[in-house]
Design a protein around this nucleic acid. Sequence first.
DNA 1: CGAAACCTTGACAATGTTCAATCACTGTGG
DNA 2: CCACAGTGATTGAACATTGTCAAGGTTTCG
Lengths: 237, 237
Amino acid sequence: MQTGFFQKIKLFSQASPTSLQQISHAAKKRLYKKGTIILDRYQSQQTFLYVINGWIKLFRESSDGEEVIVDMLTQNHHCGATFLFESKEEDTYMAKSISEIEIFTLPTTLLKRLVASDHNLSLCLMHSILQKQKSLSVHIEHLSIQNAMQRIGCFLLRLRSDIQFQKNIKLRLPYDKVLLASRLGMRPETFSRALSKLSRKCDLHVDNELIAISCPLKLIQYVCQHCSQIFPCNLEG
Amino acid sequence: MQTGFFQKIKLFSQASPTSLQQISHAAKKRLYKKGTIILDRYQSQQTFLYVINGWIKLFRESSDGEEVIVDMLTQNHHCGATFLFESKEEDTYMAKSISEIEIFTLPTTLLKRLVASDHNLSLCLMHSILQKQKSLSVHIEHLSIQNAMQRIGCFLLRLRSDIQFQKNIKLRLPYDKVLLASRLGMRPETFSRALSKLSRKCDLHVDNELIAISCPLKLIQYVCQHCSQIFPCNLEG
DNA sequence: CGAAACCTTGACAATGTTCAATCACTGTGG
DNA sequence: CCACAGTGATTGAACATTGTCAAGGTTTCG
């Protein structure tokens, strides 16, 4: 792969020429169709994964056999930084493509070496981790404050950054409702009922995975009322 | 303050002598009694705060005037790293002592300079941030999977790391129940009822803020049953 | 075509919240 | 020193929200 490609990625934009060269040498770009297991738990430990395009589900099984969503990644998200310093088996996860995806991977060992030697690269990585941390904090606040309808509305609002200045927004849910329900901490049945209740309350038009928001401000007002953030909260850079 | 003090702190253990010197020069050690406002929102932006001892509440107000807990800090926790790269007003918080506390602070600007120049220091900081990130992920899993009784039990279990090998553990709640309830994402009334229900179910003995766990394994079994982590999950340090 | 997954709906159970009342405890000012 | 206000904590009753179970429709894909 070409160094220019990586230089355009914020995370690597400050990396030294040597680092960029090593990265572009070692990176493996891959395309997968929907529904493919990308990493098993063992591989997750050894792989830094960067999403160029599409959606990926990171998950584990709980002790009673249920699937637990660890994270959902999309464009410009990455995973694997956890294993730069510690490599505990309990932290591992599986990765599965939820749509067609385009990604690249790097061996954790290489990234570890680069981060140890390339100060600017490590600072970019730290910046990115801090952004992620903020989004986790916001997620926690939402889970403890918002009800099912609000969590769904909040998710919709975050799908588009320009949403507050538009009218009659049209969205497509990026992945299926069962998964989305789980991501938002509720049962599929609750999701189904809450979405239809929300659409009555805030003038949405729902047609399977297509959703039209006729008046974003109305939705924002209902969704964000108890939150400590100001509306376009936590839109990642 | 003495450089030796900071060298013993994991976060600064790999810092260069020059960094350590600058840190020890600029650090302000402080004692506060319970109930003191340590930082207002403006100060939080300019201050890196490290807890030597005691408990601190970080919080904000939501748009409808409710207090939102951002984080609870204790021994060896810190806050302020967020502002090393970005300084958004919405990310600021207030800090209040919940017990007698001993802390030290550094100006964000200094830490920023040091992190920019001292590679090993920045790696230590990154490590610490990644640990924090893991604990946030676990928190999210707990909020979406556990019920009120389990969240309370889980909190108790994390108060002592050796808990699984003991019998008849005696604990003291580190801060009041209203705050703890909010931290665990429930109402004080729910907390009160859930704690008494839990104590019946898992043989706890509750006497105000004192709690005795006669059989930790029984509690672990009930609390951790749906979790993707293995028991002594996410014990920091 | 048929199996499997996804999605929705109804009836009901479990869980959590709200509101109001009460009690204990703490610190303050008269 | 006591009265009193304020906070923390608990409890009951009514209510709201979410989860569970079962059934049936729809979509997807080999």
